[in-house]
Nucleic acid binder design. Structure first.
Length: 265
DNA sequence: TTCCAGGCGTATC
DNA sequence: GATACGCATGGA
């Protein structure tokens, strides 16, 4: 990945990347559109990023920050053109990839992803974003598991998470007590990782799959929600094409966005 | 007013 | 193991 430093900014070029499509497709909840770009956080690391065609500008970012963090976060070493080529042997996937060419899978923090997707259940995206933003305001940044584990339901009542409050606290306790070891989820056989995550109250198959995909970069994980259920019944009654199975989670990103926002009828 | 939102726990069969 | 229902909240 070629890049250069100008003033205090990092510049690089990428053909298979679109900020709006990537940051606003339901995998991350802490990015906001600004006048000229997007502003957001990964845990407590803040970034302001702009896009001009295929050129990207990370404002006030050092070479060290880019190399040690953002390059990995935006998955810039993965060849998405190659992935889309593989998917495009299938008609539906081809359409989905063409519909939003610039989607990439973000490599997010496991803990942040776990809490975010617990909050996401039976909830809508604007409200998920609002709750997480208020949580960060309340704690002065994204709360650690240790900090959240000290809280009671009444402490976090102002966040208005409803029935999810006890799930959030159980996740905090599980992680803080090492009942669930987050750092092992990236290397454990995936069924064991699923099982470990689902031992947390309020974490079922869907949330576990999201944590593995978005928070552990387990690209074989395949979250199934109402939209994906729809696309599977309609187009893939016998499962995804073989050549998409290995990276099913990334294919899922294109399909989810396509089904949810495109006029597919 | 009613319905819905990137689900899950529980009860019941 | 499959299916039905309640769940907090706020916006449409």
């Amino acid at each position: 990945m070629d890049f250069c430093v100008k003033n205090n900014d990092i510049h690089f070029f990428c053909d298979d990347f679109d900020l709006a499509e990537t940051l606003d497709c339901g995998q991350a909840f802490r990015w906001k559109k600004t006048e000229k770009g997007f502003c957001g956080f990964a845990l407590d690391r803040e970034l302001y990023i702009e896009q001009y065609g295929n050129e990207f500008v990370l404002k006030d970012t050092t070479k060290e920050d880019f190399l040690s963090f953002w390059q990995n976060y935006f998955d810039l070493d993965t060849d998405y053109a190659e992935l889309k080529k593989i998917y495009s042997s299938d008609e539906t996937l081809k359409k989905a990839c063409e519909y939003a060419k610039g989607i990439r899978l973000l490599k997010q923090d496991t803990w942040e992803t776990l809490i975010s997707f617990i909050i996401s259940q039976n909830n809508n995206i604007p409200r998920i974003k609002g709750i997480i933003e208020n949580m960060c305001k309340m704690f002065g940044g994204f709360p650690t598991a240790e900090r959240l584990a000290q809280c009671s339901e009444s402490d976090i009542a102002p966040l208005r998470t409803g029935f999810r409050a006890k799930y959030i606290l159980d996740a905090a306790d599980a992680v803080n007590s090492k009942r669930v070891k987050l750092d092992e989820l990236k290397t454990l056989p995936i069924d064991e990782a699923r099982k470990s995550l689902m031992s947390i109250k309020g974490v079922g198959p869907k949330v576990a799959e999201c944590v593995l995909l978005y928070g552990c970069y387990r690209v074989e994980a395949f979250p199934v929600d109402v939209w994906i259920k729809r696309v599977m019944t309609e187009y893939y009654p016998d499962g995804l094409p073989k050549n998409a199975i290995e990276t099913a989670g990334i294919a899922q990103q294109y399909l989810f966005h396509y089904m949810r926002t495109a006029d597919t009828k």
